[in-house]
Design a protein around this nucleic acid. Structure first.
Ligand SMILES: [Zn+2]
Ligand SMILES: [Zn+2]
Ligand SMILES: [Zn+2]
Ligand SMILES: [Zn+2]
Lengths: 138, 138
DNA sequence: CTTGAAGCTCTAGTGACTAGAGGTTGTAGA
DNA sequence: TCTACAACCTCTAGTCACTAGAGCTTCAAG
């Protein structure tokens, strides 16, 4: 049996975060000591590892809840799991497109001024004031 | 003079958002009517355009506050403006790197299962359970 | 002068934590 | 067995940039 602190060390998830996961129903402790402290078994350790990894990949708490639910029912179809993963991939790709567009504009803007002049003739400020300066949409 | 609704239409910023910008000190109205409604002049319109564009480029409220402050003082050096822009560019590039790594892993994960099987042999769930499956860091 | 769209303030909710206050428990060493 | 103190507990509030809603008032067109 592990204390919350030991779980934290093993997974790299902070103690308050583990308590937060319990609050939102993602991870229940195996039980409590007489003095009301949480104790976890290896199941809990593995589940927290799952949560951590999925969070690192950007899955939402809601999505992870659904995935864990699926994992608890080995006889169910995994269709929902692939759908969730596909959705997450789509999401990441959209963000990538947006960020690439931002990068293009920001390179132009940030490199357009050396910071030696005064703000009334600053290319950074002028670019922010008018989207017309931008090469593309963003 | 424009009402808050007219300002909203011209800039594409929602009415509650404009009020929020006032609350955090970004945009003050030119005055109020006898009945306490906000009225803006072209200065306000331009400033809101600036805010909108900077937000679209991902600058934080705090950064925009500093930029507008600088804009109000045309005789000051624009060094801070370029620093803020460079910082934003760095930030975007870091996010891009992270998202690219995520995309790589998610492609593998999402395409690794067709969703036809049961969840106990699902590649998506197995991949999330163990970072060992991953090709790189993320 | 009436009507209804648009305005006002204030509070609370979003997501995924994080920080802090103020109190209790577990455990290792003496 | 006692003591010290790290680790634990709960609860509240703060983060960021909005967004939603309740309940009320004002503006402007017909
Ligand atoms: Zn400059
Ligand atoms: Zn632009
Ligand atoms: Zn599957
Ligand atoms: Zn991984």
């Amino acid at each position: 049996m592990f204390s919350i602190g030991q779980l934290s060390k093993q997974t790299g998830v902070k103690v308050p975060t583990i308590r937060y996961y319990e609050q939102v129903g993602l991870l229940v402790s195996a039980g409590r000591t007489e003095g009301n402290q949480r104790r976890y078994d290896t199941d809990g350790l593995e589940r927290l590892g799952f949560i951590r990894h999925a969070r690192d990949l950007g899955f939402s708490i809601e999505a992870i809840t659904a995935l864990i639910d699926l994992q608890q029912h080995p006889d169910r179809s995994c269709q929902e799991a692939t759908q969730i993963a596909q959705h997450q991939l789509t999401d990441v790709r959209e963000k990538l497109l947006r960020l690439k567009a931002l990068e293009t504009e920001l390179v132009r803007i940030a490199d357009g001024c050396d910071g030696e002049g005064n703000s009334d003739e600053c290319y950074v400020l002028a670019s922010l004031a008018d989207h017309q300066h931008c090469r593309g949409e963003h």
